[in-house]
Simulated assay, not measured.
Amino acid sequence: MDLKMYDKCKWIDFEVLKDFMIKSLTNVGVPEDQAEIVADVLITSDKRGIDSHGIGRLKPIYIDRIDNGILNPETKVTIIKENKGVAVLDGNNGLGHVVSYKAMNLAIEKAKEYGISMVTVRNSTHYGIAGYYPLMAIKEGMIGITGTNARPSIAPTFGVENMLGTNPFTFGIPTDEEFPFVLDCATSISQRGKIEVYAREGRETPNNWVIDRDGNPMTNSLDILSALTSGKAALNPLGGSGEDGGGYKGYGFATIVEIFSAALQDGKFLKDLSGKDENGDPIPYPLGHFFIVIDPDFFMGRNLFKKIAGTILRSLRESKKSPHEERIYTAGEKEWLAWNLRKDKGCPIPESLELIIKELSQRFSIENPLKDN
């Protein structure tokens, strides 16, 4: 792992940073037990090296939206329908992490009884790192799957208008190794959060990630973020624009996630998730999520499943490498390596985030965790 990118970063102990996030959230009205869930989701992202979805999103995605009145600080979860292995929940425009935590726990309990379960959620909001929820199932020895729609970002194949969200389709699988298999990625080439990281670092976005309304590529990260918000740019789906690179595959998977995130719970979709009313004023993003849990014990047993899954992954990593590469990875391995790097050092904080942390500490009169760094 390249450590040069962290040369100018300060480092904060994870528990100290998590406590700072909890205090910040409670200061804007989030109940402490719910703030604990949100902070745990965010800190898990930072622990796993996914800097796009950790502390960097505390203020702009959550606190700012609470301040603007488009995100309810207290999450009230309503059960719309429940029947054996399935359930439909309503998040009532509260914090997506909280309703999703409840939904995945409910799916886990149902899978223990029925072998497989699915819980869907409507009227939710951004739920953080998608991989957090399959990790909950993995802790119970089970397979976890989740997906969510999001504000329009991806253009359909042969199109230039942002219609679909980045719509991650995420799988978590327990194995007999030190780390599980966790495939957590957007159905676009890359997600908005990575571009936000590039913008904070003053870096350009790769050439084939984003197109403007004329189908031309965009690379200025700050311009892209503004254009995505105004609808003047769109992310390319996995595989890129057109069909030659298989862009229709990413487009298809994004569409599946959109349907599952809306049609199974009578939720909003596509342009209804833009966060703007007819006058252009901000309104809530009523997102939908789904959570699927499979218990291997109902098939051939958890231990056998984990052994075979681990053998498959080891075989892939031990296969013949390109002469230009040092190793082959399997999904979840790099996140495990990031944790092994960060567990003693803490979370890296670039200068742009230092300013946000200072701002929040002054606003809420709480101790700045960076003061001694």
Rank of each mutant, 00 (worst) to 15 (best):
N279K: 10
K232F: 15
I37P: 03
I116D: 03
P284G: 13
E367I: 01
E326P: 08
E351M: 03
D13V: 07
N162Q: 11
D212H: 04
S230D: 13
G193M: 05
N72E: 15
L183E: 08
K268P: 02
S117A: 12
L360V: 09
D19S: 15
E359I: 00
E36W: 03
F298G: 10
D19V: 09
D64H: 12
D67M: 07
G301V: 07
G56E: 04
L89C: 11
I294M: 09
A87C: 15
I129N: 00
K321T: 06
D244W: 08
E351Q: 12
D46H: 01
G275D: 13
S190D: 04
S153K: 08
T44Y: 12
D295T: 01
I79P: 03
P31K: 07
M218N: 11
L106A: 08
P152L: 01
E32G: 08
V99S: 12
M104G: 10
N340D: 01
L89D: 14
Y285R: 14
G250C: 07
A87Y: 05
S24T: 06
T170A: 00
V86C: 12
T311F: 10
A254L: 06
T170C: 12
P152W: 02
M5K: 10
Y101E: 14
D272A: 15
K47D: 05
T125Q: 09
S241A: 14
N236W: 04
F179R: 04
G193I: 00
L370D: 02
K112E: 15
P156G: 00
T229R: 14
T166S: 11
D19M: 03
N279A: 06
F260D: 07
P237T: 04
V210I: 15
V86D: 01
N92Y: 10
D184K: 02
E140F: 04
T170S: 08
A262Q: 11
V16R: 07
D64W: 05
K345D: 06
K10E: 11
L3V: 01
T219D: 02
L89G: 10
P369A: 06
K110T: 07
S319W: 00
L135R: 12
G346E: 08
F171S: 05
I108K: 08
D297W: 01
T78E: 09
E140A: 03
S100F: 00
S230L: 13
A35D: 09
M5T: 02
R213A: 11
A87I: 10
G275A: 13
M142S: 10
G215E: 09
R342N: 07
D372Y: 13
G165E: 04
N220P: 11
D46Y: 05
D281N: 15
P174E: 00
W339D: 02
D184I: 00
A35K: 08
Q362G: 08
I256M: 14
V121I: 08
D67G: 12
T166Q: 08
D281W: 01
N149P: 13
F291Q: 01
I224M: 02
H53K: 03
T311Q: 10
G346I: 04
W11E: 03
D297V: 00
E335D: 10
I211L: 14
Y62D: 00
R327V: 09
D90V: 04
Y248N: 09
G288R: 04
T187E: 05
V197F: 03
S226M: 07
G252F: 08
I55M: 15
V119L: 05
E82M: 05
Y6H: 01
I357T: 12
Y114K: 08
G128W: 00
